[in-house]
Design a protein around this nucleic acid. Structure first.
Length: 190
DNA sequence: CGGCTTTGACCCGCGC
DNA sequence: GCGCGGGTCAAAGCCG
């Protein structure tokens, strides 16, 4: 997979600090947890990058911001009322896998083939760019993701996926290589 | 007109 | 207890 090797050249030239809103189509078919099992990190993108050996130049992107947060009581089934505060602390054991990776791209929204609905945006400490919260629009699929652009290198977008899709992707991934030629993927598992 | 984004409020955990 | 930081809700507006 020399494509990844290819990215690292000609990247720095394209950081034109313009966050154009053209949607970039990144289609990762069999990655990002499409499946029933949890924690199947061996396949898909993460495993792919793990075995191809991401070059060590990514120390510029310290993922000290990526701290695993298992509590994350976001397991709202959508039925509980805030006022009632049923606070389902019991099923905290069902922690969801969270996969974060960083892509060097000029666009904020990396379309990975799923349909996402934005449900929030917050300013993050130590970052001048806000973090966006998305949820998969597919029925019964409450996969969430966060997209955040780093202050240190505004050419890098950090995407954190939480949960596993229970439905197939709908788009094709034939232009995957074309996408890869436009961005640089870092990896991190948490 | 329906789906999505925007955006302020709300909630909650945690540290002081 | 209070403030802060982060995550979510939901009403209103936008847009194809």
């Amino acid at each position: 997979m020399e494509i990844f090797e290819g990215f690292f050249h000609g990247l720095s030239s394209s950081s034109s600090s313009s966050s154009s809103s053209t949607s970039l189509s990144l289609n990762l078919r069999n990655s990002l947890g499409y499946g029933e099992l949890q924690g199947d990190r061996d396949n898909g993108m993460l495993g792919l990058m793990a075995e191809m050996g991401v070059p060590g130049s990514l120390n510029a992107v310290k993922n000290n911001d990526l701290h695993e947060n298992e509590g994350l009581g976001g397991t709202t089934a959508g039925t509980d009322e805030r006022i009632g505060k049923t606070k389902k602390g019991d099923n905290r054991k069902t922690r969801k896998p969270r996969h974060a990776f960083q892509t060097r791209s000029q666009v904020d929204i990396l379309d990975d083939g799923y349909r996402w609905r934005k449900y929030g945006q917050k300013a993050v400490k130590n970052n001048k760019f806000p973090r966006s919260y998305y949820r998969c629009t597919h029925q019964g699929c409450n996969v969430k993701k966060q997209v955040q652009r780093l202050t240190r290198d505004e050419g890098i977008v950090e995407t954190t996926y939480e949960g596993l899709h229970s439905h197939p992707i709908q788009k094709t991934n034939d232009n995957f290589e074309h996408i890869l030629s436009q961005m640089q993927i870092y990896t991190s598992s948490l």
